[in-house]
Structure formats: structure tokens, C-alpha cells
């Protein structure tokens, strides 16, 4: 019996000991699709960006799956949101994978939340307030002004990791940034009529978008962060919305739809299912189309109202 076990073990190990595909691309492990997309924009075809989550998943509730351990094991650059968003699974991956490049504070490890000013940093912390992030709200990618500092950090890291292609990264980065800044000011002029509009959201995933567009968050469908909507809270919300109407009920593709459907049915206020991240809709293939589609959906809601 033992001989059979040893044979199986030896065959198994030798099958996998041969190193995998040895292409020279820089392997980027991104925790969320927005960072994979940003790294791909800057790295072009010199990098291979992998996203641990897809747009339909809530990035907080992910298991440290076997496939993620294998990806982390061979990653050259790790980009995550940080601020506690991945605290359930990222530490497990780092521990299991044993990748010397994947270390907190090291040059191959980037946390976006450490590069931009965070909103909603709580002054007091108590679990009765729901799923709170001590450092602040981690969904930082939804303000276009947060993208440039993160892009800068990515290009600096890529230049160190793959010095041979330094000039290409530099060029890609400059092209990206010029396009991004132009697009940001275009979006801002287009979206000026959204200023001060009132909205309801499912979860506090939209803080940075609301802050950027100067929208007014009336309330969330979740009574507390991470706690699913319940009927008493929804009734209260209905009264609040009837008193002063809102533009739209906003949710992400991964949020459950019962709460927003119910409120929309009662009030006639449209649901706005915003893509939230790259891949949230078929046509949202990068960060540019993410913001374009988001503003289009808001425009639709404004037009429907007037």
C-alpha cells in the first residue's frame, strides 16, 4: 500500500515540477478587474494581467481557491485595493504561495488604498455598525482622479521589475495619462448637470463616484454595510423617497436585486445597474468605457425624468 502511495506521489510531483510556460511576460496578479485593466493599459503586451475576481463577484467574499494560490505563486507584481477589502483571502494566499516577491511593503506589492486619500474613515469602530473598514472605504477606483497616482505607482514598479522595457512602459504610461486627463475633464463637463442629484444605492460601493460627481446619497438599501436589506428598513426608505424624490436606485451587477426592484416598483424610480468595474457589462472593456457607460446610464435616468 505504501509503495503505491509513494509511486503516485513521485509521478505527481515530476508531472508538475517542469516549470510552466516560460514566456518573458511580467505576470500581474490583480485582486480586482479594475487594477488588472489598468496594469494591462500601462504594460501593453509586455504584461499578462490576471484578475482574481470578476465583475459579478463581491471582492470581499472570495475563498483562497487553489487556482489563486497557483497564480500568486508565480506573480511578479501584485495589485490590490487594500483597506481591508481582501482581508479574508489575500493573507491566506500570500502565506500559502510563499512567493518572495509578494511581500507587504516590497516593490512588487501595491495597495491602491494606500496611494489615494480615503473617504469614510470611521472615527469610532464597532462591529454593530456593520462591516466597517477601519482604514476607510476601499472602492477607490470610481473617482477618475484616483487613477493617475495608482497608474504612476504601477509604471514605477514595472520599470523596476522589467528594466529592459523601461522606455516602452514610460511611453505607454504617458499616452494613457494624457488620454485619461483629457477624458476626465470631458466627463466632468458632461456630468455637470448631475451635481446635487439625489440617489439611493444598495451598498456603500459608490462613495468615490458620489464624491466625484457631487451627487447626494439619500440612503442605502442595506441598513448597515454588509447587512442585507430588510423590510422595516425598506419601508422607512420608501417614506424617505416619497417625501423627496430621487434620480435613481443604484446597484452593482453583483448586488442582489430584490431590494432595488421592490423600491423601484413602489416608486417608479428607475434602477441604475452601473457596471462598477471592468467587465460589469459586455462593452465595458477598460477603465475609459467604465466611466463612459456609468455616465451614459445616469444621463438616461436624467432624460427619463425631464
Amino acid at each position: 500500500m505504501k509503495h503505491i502511495f509513494f509511486t503516485i506521489l513521485t509521478v505527481f510531483s515530476s508531472l508538475f515540477l517542469a516549470p510552466g510556460s516560460a514566456d518573458a511576460k511580467v505576470r500581474v496578479f490583480a485582486c480586482e478587474p479594475e487594477w488588472a485593466s489598468l496594469a494591462q493599459s500601462i504594460g501593453g503586451n509586455l504584461v499578462e494581467a490576471y484578475s482574481a475576481t470578476h465583475a459579478a463577484q463581491d471582492p470581499h467574499y472570495i475563498r483562497a481557491r487553489p487556482s489563486l494560490i497557483a497564480k500568486m505563486r508565480r506573480a511578479d507584481l501584485i495589485i490590490c485595493s487594500g483597506a481591508g477589502l481582501e482581508e479574508g483571502w489575500l493573507p491566506v494566499l500570500l502565506q500559502k504561495a510563499g512567493n518572495t516577491k509578494a511581500q507587504h511593503g516590497g516593490p512588487n506589492f501595491l495597495l491602491a488604498a494606500n496611494l489615494v486619500p480615503l473617504l469614510e474613515t470611521p472615527v469610532t469602530l464597532d462591529r454593530s455598525m456593520g462591516d466597517m473598514h477601519a482604514q476607510g472605504n476601499p472602492h477607490v477606483h470610481l473617482n477618475p482622479h484616483n487613477i493617475p497616482p495608482i497608474a504612476t505607482a504601477i509604471v514605477e514598479r514595472l520599470k523596476v521589475i522589467d528594466g529592459a522595457n523601461l522606455t516602452t512602459y514610460e511611453q505607454n504610461y504617458e499616452t494613457f495619462l494624457a488620454r485619461w486627463i483629457a477624458a476626465t475633464s470631458r466627463w466632468e463637463s458632461e456630468a455637470s448637470d448631475l451635481k446635487g442629484r439625489r440617489i439611493v444605492t444598495h451598498h456603500k460601493s459608490w462613495t468615490y463616484l458620489i464624491d466625484w460627481l457631487e451627487l447626494k446619497l439619500v440612503n442605502t438599501l442595506e441598513p448597515k454595510p454588509g447587512i442585507p436589506p430588510n423590510s422595516s428598513h425598506l419601508e422607512q426608505l420608501l417614506a424617505q423617497v416619497n417625501e423627496a424624490p430621487v434620480l435613481a436606485i443604484v446597484r452593482s451587477p453583483y448586488a442582489p436585486d430584490q431590494g432595488s426592484k421592490w423600491l423601484s416598483g413602489k416608486t417608479g424610480i428607475p434602477e441604475a445597474i452601473l457596471p462598477f468595474t471592468v467587465g460589469g457589462e459586455d462593452e465595458v472593456t477598460d477603465l475609459f468605457s467604465l466611466f463612459e457607460r456609468t455616465l451614459d446610464i445616469f444621463d438616461g435616468a436624467v432624460d427619463a425624468k425631464s
Binding site: L9, F12, S13, L15, F16, L17, A18, P19, G20, S21, P66, S67, I69, A70, R73, R74, K96, A97, G98
Partner: peptide
């Protein structure tokens, strides 16, 4: 030890 494969394999 996580083997250096594209696929997850651990011994």
C-alpha cells in the same frame, strides 16, 4: 511546497 506550475499542485 507549491510546485512552480500554472496549475495548483502542492506537496
Amino acid at each position: 511546497y507549491i510546485l512552480p506550475a500554472d496549475f495548483y499542485a502542492e506537496i
